[in-house]
Simulated assay, not measured.
Amino acid sequence: MKRLILLAVIALSGLTSCSTYNRMVNNEEAVNAAWANVETQYQRRADLIPNLVNTVKGYAQHEQSTLEQVVEARAKATSINLSADELTPENLAEFQRAQSEVRSALGRLIAISESYPDLKANQNFLELQAQLEGTENRIAVARSNFNTATREYNMSIRRFPANLIAKMFSFRPKPYFEADEQSAAAPAVTF
């Protein structure tokens, strides 16, 4: 009888461990999928930038340095390829810095358009500007979804007794996206 009870306890423990492991795998895959969505939105923005720069070039010949900064920031941001397996706080911070430089350069480029009434009225420019705005919103949603998936994953590997299985199979916490230092300051609106 004692052997039967012992076998039942071992079997139940094994099933629970398998279920816990599978839940961790599912959560980790959710983080990987959310990261892929973040990268997709950043790539969408990077793909729109050359069209925007070329549209502005025709109107703003003497704004060459700003245009070059946008192109340079885009090149730097697209050169950082970060897979979900390489998500460390340091790598994610470097990725965020590069994307922040792109956002800042785009902001300067959009500000230049204020000096060119014909450019502001150009349909191509208006469409590209709207697409970039939509892309920035998609990036924000993708980053939020990534943080939600990361939270679920991190909680699943830290809870007891799941943390024992997580350590046994080398599940490591994933870093979160955090707000840029620049986003702490409210943008100045002038008329």
Rank of each mutant, 00 (worst) to 15 (best):
T148F: 09
E133K: 15
A140T: 15
R151M: 15
F146K: 08
I157Y: 05
S156I: 07
I157S: 02
A130R: 09
M155T: 03
A149V: 03
T148W: 05
A149F: 08
A130F: 00
A140G: 10
A142F: 01
R138Q: 12
R151D: 11
Q131I: 14
N147E: 06
A149M: 07
N147H: 11
R138T: 00
A149L: 08
F160G: 06
A142I: 08
A149K: 04
A149P: 10
T150D: 09
F160K: 10
R143H: 07
E136M: 00
E133P: 11
I157D: 04
T148Y: 13
T135F: 05
S156E: 13
R159V: 13
E136I: 03
N147F: 04
A140M: 15
N137A: 13
N145R: 10
A140Y: 07
N137K: 09
E152K: 14
I139G: 06
L132C: 14
Q131T: 05
T148S: 14
V141G: 03
R158I: 01
A149I: 05
E133R: 15
V141R: 13
F160M: 08
R151C: 06
S156Q: 09
N145W: 05
F160V: 11
R143A: 01
E133N: 15
A130E: 12
R158E: 12
R138F: 06
F160R: 04
A140D: 13
Q131K: 15
R143G: 07
T135L: 02
Q131M: 06
N147K: 15
L132D: 00
I157R: 02
Y153E: 07
F160D: 05
E133C: 05
N154L: 03
N137D: 10
N137G: 09
G134Q: 12
I139H: 05
N145S: 03
V141A: 14
A140V: 10
G134L: 02
R151S: 13
F160I: 14
T135M: 06
F160L: 09
I139T: 03
T148H: 14
T150V: 08
F146S: 01
A162R: 04
A130W: 07
E152D: 14
F160S: 12
L132Q: 02
Y153V: 04
P161Q: 12
R159G: 04
E133M: 02
R158A: 08
E133G: 15
I139C: 00
P161L: 10
R143I: 00
T150Y: 08
Q131N: 14
R138I: 05
M155D: 10
A149T: 04
Y153Q: 04
T135N: 04
G134V: 00
N145V: 02
A140H: 00
G134C: 08
T150K: 07
F146H: 09
E133W: 11
P161K: 11
I139E: 01
E133D: 06
S156G: 11
M155Y: 06
S156A: 12
T135C: 12
M155W: 01
G134K: 02
R151N: 13
N154Q: 09
F160H: 05
A142M: 08
T135G: 10
N137C: 10
N137E: 11
S144H: 14
S156N: 07
A162T: 05
M155C: 04
A149N: 01
I157V: 12
